[in-house]
Amino acid sequence: MTDPRTNRPDLMDPALVAGLGSIELVARRIVDGFMQGLHRSPRKGFSVEFAEHRQYQPGDDLRFIDWKVLARSDRWMMKLNTEDTNLRATIVLDVSKSMHWTGAPGRLTKAAYAERLAATIALILLRQRDAVGLIRFDDQVRSVIPPRSRSVHWHRIVKALDDPGAGLASDAPGGLMRAASMVGRAGMVLLISDLLMDPVEVADTLKGLASAGHHLTVLHIMDPAERDLAVGAIEAEFKDPESGQKLAATVADVREAYRTAVVESVDEWRQHLSGAAASHEVVLTDHPFGMPLRRAFMNRQILP
């Protein structure tokens, strides 16, 4: 009997899934698999249901006056529907040069993994009638797609993912500030980055976003080789592709210390981000896409 998990792209090897085709195709398959795993209809719970009343104010659209309440109680009340409370999400994607790296030839680069993950998240949200926007940044903001909830909007997002990037630095605060300015009311901001940057500055920016009522989620993309210093060389001169800084080291000598440094660094990020009311998830590029998707959405209970 065939394990149904083997047929679900969201649980397959990301490199294998990526080989199925374009980002668009891959994202659709992942979403289909992901939704199938939830055992819930993506349409269920999606409707223009009544949400609440509020006092009519001059200038309000007369179409939303609740005439039944007016008839029964002679009060002018405005009827607010769930359509009005749909999520406005902005995906802030790091496309700096450090993201375009993989520790193994058959593995996706962090950027490729993140792009497919962003496309997948966007598609899920759009299918929920949520508005989704995209901001790509490296040392500057490269692409800005304002949040929209129309289904065709996803194609714009996918197309934007193909835009150039790979700058020599990661200006996450800039991208986050741009996201805050785009989302007029409280929404969700999803930062996808390898976080090879200063956590304090990013955390400060996120605190500002959190105070504005945004739900913040950070997907920390990491290649397994970055976690374990699993490079093929014994003696190597390591070079940072962004800063050009070099460091010679014997892998066996420093591996354990490196692992400790990674753990400590991840803990620091977690502490900083928790202070900013942001959830933090480490996503390894050899993990199936379903894992970060579930973590990203389960934290906020925003799944359909």
């Binding site: 970055e226 490079v231 003696e235 070099k246 460091l247 210390a257 490196y258 400590e264």
Partner: peptide, 24 residues
């Protein structure tokens, strides 16, 4: 000469390596 030997490896997470070197 160990710091001058070995192949050049591009490694984005150099900051972790620097931290490891610094702390240990």
């Amino acid at each position: 000469l160990r710091r001058k030997t070995g192949e050049a490896v591009e490694f984005p997470a150099l900051r972790y390596l620097l931290r490891a070197q610094r702390e240990f």
